[in-house]
Protein backbone atom coordinates (compact mmCIF):
# COMPACT_ATOMS: atom_id res chain seq x y z
CA UNK A 1 0.00 0.00 0.00
CA UNK A 2 3.00 2.30 0.30
CA UNK A 3 3.06 4.73 -2.54
CA UNK A 4 4.11 8.08 -3.79
CA UNK A 5 4.18 10.64 -1.05
CA UNK A 6 2.38 13.81 -1.95
CA UNK A 7 4.37 16.81 -0.94
CA UNK A 8 2.64 19.80 -2.47
CA UNK A 9 1.83 22.47 0.01
CA UNK A 10 -0.86 25.03 -0.24
CA UNK A 11 1.22 27.81 -1.63
CA UNK A 12 3.02 25.91 -4.33
CA UNK A 13 -0.11 24.22 -5.54
CA UNK A 14 -1.84 27.56 -5.82
CA UNK A 15 -4.63 26.01 -3.90
CA UNK A 16 -6.38 29.17 -2.92
CA UNK A 17 -8.51 29.60 0.09
CA UNK A 18 -11.41 30.64 -2.07
CA UNK A 19 -11.47 27.51 -4.17
CA UNK A 20 -10.90 25.52 -1.05
CA UNK A 21 -13.95 26.90 0.64
CA UNK A 22 -16.03 26.15 -2.42
CA UNK A 23 -14.79 22.62 -2.35
CA UNK A 24 -16.07 22.24 1.15
CA UNK A 25 -19.49 23.65 0.48
CA UNK A 26 -21.26 20.42 -0.28
CA UNK A 27 -24.37 21.81 1.34
CA UNK A 28 -25.04 23.80 -1.79
CA UNK A 29 -25.79 20.58 -3.58
CA UNK A 30 -28.21 19.18 -1.11
CA UNK A 31 -31.17 20.83 -2.76
CA UNK A 32 -30.17 19.97 -6.27
CA UNK A 33 -30.46 16.24 -6.40
CA UNK A 34 -32.84 16.04 -9.28
CA UNK A 35 -30.21 15.12 -11.77
CA UNK A 36 -27.03 13.25 -11.78
CA UNK A 37 -27.35 11.19 -8.62
CA UNK A 38 -25.10 8.17 -8.93
CA UNK A 39 -24.43 8.91 -12.58
CA UNK A 40 -21.01 10.39 -12.11
CA UNK A 41 -21.92 13.29 -14.32
CA UNK A 42 -23.06 15.78 -11.75
CA UNK A 43 -20.96 18.81 -11.20
CA UNK A 44 -18.94 18.27 -14.32
CA UNK A 45 -19.82 21.73 -15.55
CA UNK A 46 -18.73 23.24 -12.28
CA UNK A 47 -15.54 21.24 -12.15
CA UNK A 48 -12.69 23.32 -10.91
CA UNK A 49 -9.41 21.99 -12.09
CA UNK A 50 -7.81 23.35 -8.94
CA UNK A 51 -9.96 21.05 -6.88
CA UNK A 52 -7.95 18.05 -7.94
CA UNK A 53 -4.80 19.53 -6.46
CA UNK A 54 -3.42 17.95 -3.37
CA UNK A 55 -2.51 20.07 -0.35
CA UNK A 56 -0.43 19.16 2.65
CA UNK A 57 0.98 17.32 4.41
CA UNK A 58 2.33 20.71 5.49
CA UNK A 59 0.10 23.46 6.87
CA UNK A 60 -2.83 24.57 4.75
CA UNK A 61 -4.78 27.79 5.15
CA UNK A 62 -8.19 27.14 6.56
CA UNK A 63 -10.96 29.55 7.36
CA UNK A 64 -13.88 28.66 9.57
CA UNK A 65 -16.30 30.26 11.93
CA UNK A 66 -16.11 29.31 15.59
CA UNK A 67 -18.74 30.61 17.99
CA UNK A 68 -19.53 33.48 15.68
CA UNK A 69 -15.96 34.62 15.04
CA UNK A 70 -14.12 33.93 11.81
CA UNK A 71 -10.72 32.32 12.23
CA UNK A 72 -8.00 31.86 9.67
CA UNK A 73 -5.19 29.53 10.49
CA UNK A 74 -2.72 27.22 8.81
CA UNK A 75 -3.13 23.60 9.89
CA UNK A 76 -1.82 20.33 8.60
CA UNK A 77 -4.54 18.21 7.03
CA UNK A 78 -4.06 15.64 9.78
CA UNK A 79 -5.17 18.02 12.53
CA UNK A 80 -8.61 17.15 13.82
CA UNK A 81 -11.22 19.79 14.41
CA UNK A 82 -11.01 18.99 18.11
CA UNK A 83 -7.25 19.42 18.34
CA UNK A 84 -7.38 22.54 16.20
CA UNK A 85 -9.99 24.07 18.49
CA UNK A 86 -8.21 23.10 21.69
CA UNK A 87 -4.60 23.66 20.76
CA UNK A 88 -4.70 26.35 18.12
CA UNK A 89 -7.72 28.43 19.08
CA UNK A 90 -7.66 27.73 22.84
CA UNK A 91 -11.32 26.73 22.66
CA UNK A 92 -11.07 24.06 25.34
CA UNK A 93 -14.73 23.45 26.15
CA UNK A 94 -14.85 20.38 23.90
CA UNK A 95 -12.83 17.68 25.65
CA UNK A 96 -10.64 14.94 24.24
CA UNK A 97 -11.56 11.71 25.98
CA UNK A 98 -11.79 8.65 23.73
CA UNK A 99 -10.51 10.45 20.62
CA UNK A 100 -12.19 7.72 18.55
CA UNK A 101 -15.72 8.94 17.95
CA UNK A 102 -17.44 7.08 20.77
CA UNK A 103 -17.74 8.99 24.04
CA UNK A 104 -19.21 12.33 22.98
CA UNK A 105 -17.08 14.62 25.15
CA UNK A 106 -15.92 16.51 22.05
CA UNK A 107 -19.39 17.12 20.66
CA UNK A 108 -19.80 20.40 18.79
CA UNK A 109 -22.31 21.68 16.28
CA UNK A 110 -21.19 21.94 12.67
CA UNK A 111 -23.66 24.08 10.75
CA UNK A 112 -26.07 23.28 13.56
CA UNK A 113 -25.61 19.52 13.51
CA UNK A 114 -24.00 17.62 16.38
CA UNK A 115 -20.73 15.92 15.45
CA UNK A 116 -17.73 14.38 17.16
CA UNK A 117 -14.98 16.96 16.69
CA UNK A 118 -12.34 14.26 17.26
CA UNK A 119 -13.43 12.46 14.12
CA UNK A 120 -13.57 15.45 11.77
CA UNK A 121 -10.46 16.91 10.17
CA UNK A 122 -10.35 20.64 10.71
CA UNK A 123 -9.71 21.08 7.00
CA UNK A 124 -13.05 19.36 6.37
CA UNK A 125 -14.81 21.99 8.46
CA UNK A 126 -13.37 24.82 6.40
CA UNK A 127 -16.03 27.28 5.38
CA UNK A 128 -18.42 25.94 7.98
CA UNK A 129 -19.77 27.27 11.22
CA UNK A 130 -18.77 25.57 14.45
CA UNK A 131 -20.55 26.08 17.75
CA UNK A 132 -18.95 24.72 20.90
CA UNK A 133 -20.38 24.70 24.39
CA UNK A 134 -18.80 28.12 24.95
CA UNK A 135 -20.78 29.42 22.00
CA UNK A 136 -24.11 28.43 23.50
CA UNK A 137 -23.75 30.65 26.55
CA UNK A 138 -21.42 31.95 29.21
CA UNK A 139 -21.51 31.70 33.03
CA UNK A 140 -23.21 35.09 33.18
CA UNK A 141 -25.58 34.41 30.32
CA UNK A 142 -26.25 30.72 30.20
CA UNK A 143 -28.21 28.94 27.51
CA UNK A 144 -31.37 27.37 28.93
CA UNK A 145 -29.83 23.93 28.68
CA UNK A 146 -26.73 25.06 30.56
CA UNK A 147 -28.88 26.62 33.26
CA UNK A 148 -30.86 23.40 33.50
CA UNK A 149 -27.63 21.40 33.90
CA UNK A 150 -26.79 23.61 36.88
CA UNK A 151 -30.28 23.48 38.35
CA UNK A 152 -30.51 19.70 38.09
CA UNK A 153 -26.94 18.99 39.20
CA UNK A 154 -26.38 17.21 35.91
CA UNK A 155 -22.62 17.33 36.36
CA UNK A 156 -19.99 16.18 38.80
CA UNK A 157 -16.39 16.31 37.63
CA UNK A 158 -17.79 18.12 34.61
CA UNK A 159 -15.54 16.61 31.98
CA UNK A 160 -18.33 15.02 29.93
CA UNK A 161 -20.58 18.03 30.52
CA UNK A 162 -19.61 20.23 27.55
CA UNK A 163 -20.38 17.40 25.13
CA UNK A 164 -23.57 16.47 26.92
CA UNK A 165 -24.75 20.09 26.96
CA UNK A 166 -24.24 20.42 23.22
CA UNK A 167 -25.88 17.05 22.48
CA UNK A 168 -28.81 17.90 24.75
CA UNK A 169 -29.25 21.30 23.15
CA UNK A 170 -29.27 19.63 19.73
CA UNK A 171 -31.80 17.03 20.90
CA UNK A 172 -34.14 19.60 22.40
CA UNK A 173 -33.88 21.82 19.35
CA UNK A 174 -35.08 18.89 17.27
CA UNK A 175 -37.57 17.47 19.79
CA UNK A 176 -38.61 19.98 22.48
CA UNK A 177 -40.40 17.19 24.38
CA UNK A 178 -38.58 14.06 23.32
CA UNK A 179 -40.03 10.57 23.63
CA UNK A 180 -37.97 7.74 25.12
CA UNK A 181 -36.83 6.50 21.68
CA UNK A 182 -35.90 10.06 20.77
CA UNK A 183 -33.86 10.37 23.96
CA UNK A 184 -32.18 7.06 23.14
CA UNK A 185 -31.39 8.28 19.66
CA UNK A 186 -30.37 11.74 20.82
CA UNK A 187 -28.18 11.08 23.85
CA UNK A 188 -26.91 7.56 23.15
CA UNK A 189 -23.62 8.89 21.87
CA UNK A 190 -22.42 10.56 25.06
CA UNK A 191 -21.03 8.83 28.13
CA UNK A 192 -20.42 10.03 31.68
CA UNK A 193 -18.18 8.37 34.27
CA UNK A 194 -19.30 10.07 37.48
CA UNK A 195 -22.91 9.03 36.87
CA UNK A 196 -24.84 12.25 36.22
CA UNK A 197 -27.60 10.73 34.10
CA UNK A 198 -30.33 11.33 36.66
CA UNK A 199 -29.73 15.06 36.39
CA UNK A 200 -29.44 14.99 32.61
CA UNK A 201 -32.75 13.11 32.45
CA UNK A 202 -34.27 15.90 34.48
CA UNK A 203 -32.84 18.48 32.08
CA UNK A 204 -34.42 16.65 29.15
CA UNK A 205 -37.72 16.15 30.97
CA UNK A 206 -37.79 19.89 31.61
CA UNK A 207 -37.89 20.30 27.87
CA UNK A 208 -35.92 23.48 28.03
CA UNK A 209 -33.71 24.89 25.39
CA UNK A 210 -36.02 24.71 22.42
CA UNK A 211 -33.58 26.69 20.38
CA UNK A 212 -29.90 26.47 19.84
CA UNK A 213 -28.22 29.77 19.30
CA UNK A 214 -25.18 30.09 17.17
CA UNK A 215 -26.02 27.10 15.03
Amino acid sequence: MKGRRVTDDAKRSGFSRRSFLRGGAAGALSGGLTTGLLTGEAGAAAADSEATETVGPGPVDVELEVNGATHRLAVEPRVTLLDGLRHRLDVTGPKRVCDRGTCGACTVLEDGRPIYACSRLMIESAGRSITTVEGLGSPDAMHDVQQAFVDNDAQQCGFCTPGFVVATAALLARHPAPSEPEIEAGLGGNFCRCGTYKGIRAVVAGGKGGGVSGG
Binding site: R86, T92, G93, P94, F149, Q155, G158, T161, V165
Partner: peptide
Protein backbone atom coordinates in the same frame (compact mmCIF):
# COMPACT_ATOMS: atom_id res chain seq x y z
CA UNK B 1 -28.02 24.72 46.90
CA UNK B 2 -26.69 24.16 43.38
CA UNK B 3 -22.98 23.47 43.10
CA UNK B 4 -21.07 26.71 42.88
CA UNK B 5 -18.94 25.74 39.91
CA UNK B 6 -21.94 24.52 37.92
CA UNK B 7 -22.06 27.53 35.58
CA UNK B 8 -18.37 27.42 34.63
CA UNK B 9 -18.58 23.70 34.03
CA UNK B 10 -21.78 23.66 32.00
CA UNK B 11 -20.52 26.47 29.77
CA UNK B 12 -17.10 24.96 29.15
CA UNK B 13 -15.41 27.94 30.80
CA UNK B 14 -13.85 25.80 33.53
CA UNK B 15 -10.18 25.25 32.68
CA UNK B 16 -9.06 21.77 33.63
CA UNK B 17 -5.37 20.87 33.92
CA UNK B 18 -5.47 19.39 30.41
CA UNK B 19 -7.00 22.65 29.12
CA UNK B 20 -4.02 24.75 30.17
CA UNK B 21 -2.17 26.20 27.19
Amino acid sequence: PARLDGPVKSTGFAKYPSDQN
